[in-house]
């Protein structure tokens, strides 16, 4: 464990493995571990865009503070951990500045509160609406990938297109989804 004065408040794991047991190799595992934290911050309220930018700017600055040799060991672990830290700090700071939102501070509970359930519901509704607007190929590819956890080769076979087309469709899907949802303050 490195200890530098520039480190974020919560430690960054030196090991390249998440604490949760599953062995998902890719981003899924890392993201799953921290997504709740991020969401609790990023979508708790309909976020104004500048807040998200401020958070990401801070994540970025903190990433810069680490030695490159450390970050490249496991960039995603750093990214999600730092983002969760920043989201946490930012929430505290916001709560101090705006007493009106103090009730939104609550505790960093793992159980979603009623308010959070509403947020999840809202988010899911927006996601479904967003899916409806996607080009058919992108929509099908994204859904097969995320819901049925198919590989892109399997998706290609299922849809009767080339892998290449699947890749493009998914890329397009992500780009469009992010654009649509970010506009609504869902992410």
């Amino acid at each position: 464990m490195t200890d530098r004065s520039t480190s974020p408040p919560r430690p960054i794991p030196a090991a390249a493995h998440p604490t949760t047991a599953h062995a998902s190799p890719g981003i899924g595992g890392w993201a799953r571990e921290y997504a709740a934290d991020l969401h609790r911050f990023l979508s708790k309220r309909r976020f104004i865009e500048s807040d998200i930018k401020d958070v990401c700017q801070e994540v970025y600055l903190r990433l810069l503070r680490f030695e490159r040799t450390e970050v490249i060991q496991n960039p995603m672990a750093y990214l999600f951990r730092v983002a969760a830290n920043v989201a946490h700090d930012f929430r505290l700071r916001q709560a101090q500045w705006t007493p009106l939102e103090a009730e939104q501070l609550e505790e960093p509970a793992t159980e979603p509160g009623p308010e959070q359930l509403l947020d999840i519901e809202y988010r899911n509704r927006r996601l479904a609406e967003m899916l409806a607007t996607l080009p058919p190929l992108s929509r099908a590819a994204l859904v097969l990938q995320s819901q049925e956890e198919l590989t892109y080769e399997e998706i290609a076979a299922r849809l009767g297109v080339t892998r290449r087309v699947v890749k493009r469709a998914i890329a397009r899907g992500y780009a469009l989804a992010r654009e649509a949802l970010a506009q609504d303050g869902v992410i």
Binding site: A31, A35, L42, C56, N124, L181
Partner: peptide, 15 residues
């Protein structure tokens, strides 16, 4: 950083 994080969240949510 922002786009990567946001897309990760989309991906998680879709699942």
């Amino acid at each position: 950083v922002r786009e990567f994080l946001q897309m990760t969240l989309v991906q998680q949510d879709l699942g």
